[in-house]
């Protein structure tokens, strides 16, 4: 069992929380990282910014642009992570071009050396993930795959089988970003996924408030919250404020009864 699988267990007795942070977005981004880790996160998704984030809405585009304008790069973000080891697992997310630029093997080894335990590459679907998946396994990094409301049943099963660490359930047909309401497609997808895998199912995309997180966690094992946190950070929130937001998500999730492994298939 990999470290991520040990830490992100469905039967951990509470709903899981994975906040997202764009690497290098501000000079003090690692202060936010530590503050969020201490505020009740079970893992943190750290985005390595890419020039052309085609699956991201305006907030994370803005965060990526801000980070790149500050000179953020793959090497820089990984060096920052290496210097700022935190207690909770770090899952890096980025786009295929950055992962493949110097070869998937080198990229995954660099992640492992920086203490990163998981990887998300949204534009590497099942058919294109083979080489990166093997490289990640060799480096002891878990490559988590995405499932979407449009994914048909057989494909969903294959994604769940080949995903490592957890399965990323994209709650809606759209880009990242805050939404007024949790998409109706979220619950159905989380339930479908839980029916085909024992790995934890994280719902992400559009989960913007503690109340939405609590609703999402009724059907999923955990939630990923990105744009809502990054909006605060871009608006000038200090590490204490971002941590405060994460704590409010934690409290909302802790109000949701966690299922035991006995009914994990439900």
């Amino acid at each position: 069992m990999t470290t991520l699988e040990t830490r992100l267990r469905r039967d951990r007795g509470r709903k899981l929380l994975m906040p997202y942070l764009t690497g290098g977005v501000t000079p003090d981004w690692t202060d936010h990282l530590r503050a969020i880790a201490d505020a009740g996160a079970d893992a943190i998704e750290v985005g390595i910014p890419f020039s052309d984030p085609t699956l991201d809405g305006v907030t994370i585009q803005e965060a990526s642009d801000a980070a790149l304008a500050r000179g953020a790069s793959t090497d820089g973000v990984l060096a920052d992570l290496s210097r700022n080891r935190i207690e909770v697992p770090v899952v890096v997310s980025t786009y295929a071009n950055l992962a493949l630029r110097r070869g998937a093997d080198r990229f995954c080894r660099a992640l492992a050396e920086a203490g990163v335990q998981g990887l998300i590459v949204p534009d590497l679907p099942l058919e294109e993930a083979g080489a990166t998946s093997a490289a990640a396994r060799a480096a002891n990094v878990d490559l988590a795959l995405l499932a979407s409301p449009a994914t048909p049943p057989l494909r969903l099963r294959e994604i769940a089988e080949r995903s490592r660490g957890f399965v990323y359930a994209v709650s809606l047909m759209g880009t990242t970003g805050e939404r007024r309401q949790l998409a109706a497609s979220a619950a159905a997808l989380a339930r479908r996924l839980r029916g085909v895998t024992d790995r934890p199912v994280f719902l992400g995309f559009g989960i913007s408030t503690p109340a939405q997180a609590a609703v999402a966690a009724r059907d999923a094992d955990g939630v990923i919250v990105g744009a809502a946190l990054m909006r605060r950070l871009l608006d000038g929130a200090d590490p204490a404020s971002t941590a405060g937001f994460v704590r409010s998500l934690r409290r909302a999730l802790d109000g949701v009864p966690a299922r035991t492994s006995a009914d994990a298939g439900g």
């Binding site: 679907p125 099942l126 995405l146 979407s148 449009a150 994914t151 994209v170």
Partner: peptide, 20 residues
């Protein structure tokens, strides 16, 4: 073959676009 022109091409899209 599978959307390839030699080593190029392919279908590097996020999962929500695969079905489309």
């Amino acid at each position: 073959v599978a959307g390839r022109f030699g080593r190029h091409g392919g279908r590097f899209v996020p999962e929500p676009l695969i079905a489309a």
